Amino acid sequence: MIAVLLGVGLIGLSASAAAAQAPVREVITGQVLRLVSVQDRDAMQSMDPGEPVAWDVQVSASRSDGEIDLSLTSDEPDDAFRVQVSACTGEGVDCGEQLLAPTVVHAGTIELGTQPAADAVWYRISTELVTPDPEASTLLTFTANGHGEDVSAGGPGAGEPGAGGPGADGPGAGGPVSDGGSGADLPSTGVVVSFLVLLVAGVLVLLGSALRSARRSGSRSGTVGGPS
């Protein structure tokens, strides 16, 4: 793993914290389209070169007519990440149908194909850091477009209606709604987790100092006036 001058103990503690976190499940809904996004954000924010990290997304619709267009957008201009997209028979299960062969991504949008609106399909986006660059990062956005709206999971603007999105009338007006934060944000190091560990350590130091001061104050007040 790429070190960031945080010390061996803190790096090990950050790795333990990342391992303890469960994948985050997020539901993003429009008037018709619905995405379910499942991702291990800690693993995405602490990537080692050559070790793929999986992100699973399900696409479905409340109407069975028509088709849904699928695309993936990256903001990475430096060829630091390789991405593969496959269709699965279930969540992370039997992902043998390849929509995108392993490809080093550039800034821009990749069209992945279409699916029938009547189907609920899981997709696996596997992302791999291909260069040991401590500054490498990207934001991936998976978008489903159909029935006059687009719904996205992952990057900036996820959970907001697209240009052809729903209007101000009718149920679900105002565009897609998410139950939580977005985030296929892929830095190459564990800086975010390590910063949180440093913050918690600082709070514990302050609490320890306050308790010691309180004990000293209690001892002094208990001896005032001498024995009765």
Score class of each variant (00 low, 15 high):
residue 199 L to N: 03
residue 169 D to C: 00
residue 200 V to N: 02
residue 187 P to C: 04
residue 179 D to R: 00
residue 166 P to T: 15
residue 168 A to F: 04
residue 188 S to G: 11
residue 155 G to M: 02
residue 191 V to P: 00
residue 174 G to K: 13
residue 169 D to H: 11
residue 173 A to M: 02
residue 182 S to H: 06
residue 158 A to F: 15
residue 190 G to T: 06
residue 156 P to H: 00
residue 165 G to E: 13
residue 181 G to T: 06
residue 197 V to E: 02
residue 177 V to E: 08
residue 160 E to K: 10
residue 196 L to N: 14
residue 193 V to S: 10
residue 193 V to M: 13
residue 191 V to C: 00
residue 158 A to L: 09
residue 188 S to F: 02
residue 163 A to I: 12
residue 186 L to R: 08
residue 189 T to Q: 05
residue 173 A to E: 11
residue 193 V to C: 05
residue 166 P to Y: 04
residue 174 G to D: 12
residue 176 P to S: 08
residue 170 G to Q: 03
residue 190 G to N: 13
residue 194 S to N: 10
residue 194 S to V: 05
residue 165 G to T: 03
residue 170 G to K: 08
residue 160 E to R: 09
residue 181 G to Y: 10
residue 197 V to C: 06
residue 196 L to D: 13
residue 165 G to S: 12
residue 192 V to P: 12
residue 167 G to T: 06
residue 194 S to W: 03
residue 158 A to P: 14
residue 179 D to C: 02
residue 191 V to F: 14
residue 174 G to C: 06
residue 194 S to D: 04
residue 191 V to M: 13
residue 163 A to L: 15
residue 161 P to M: 11
residue 156 P to E: 03
residue 166 P to G: 15
residue 192 V to L: 13
residue 183 G to A: 09
residue 172 G to M: 12
residue 187 P to Y: 04
residue 187 P to N: 04
residue 158 A to G: 15
residue 180 G to Y: 02
residue 196 L to Q: 14
residue 196 L to F: 15
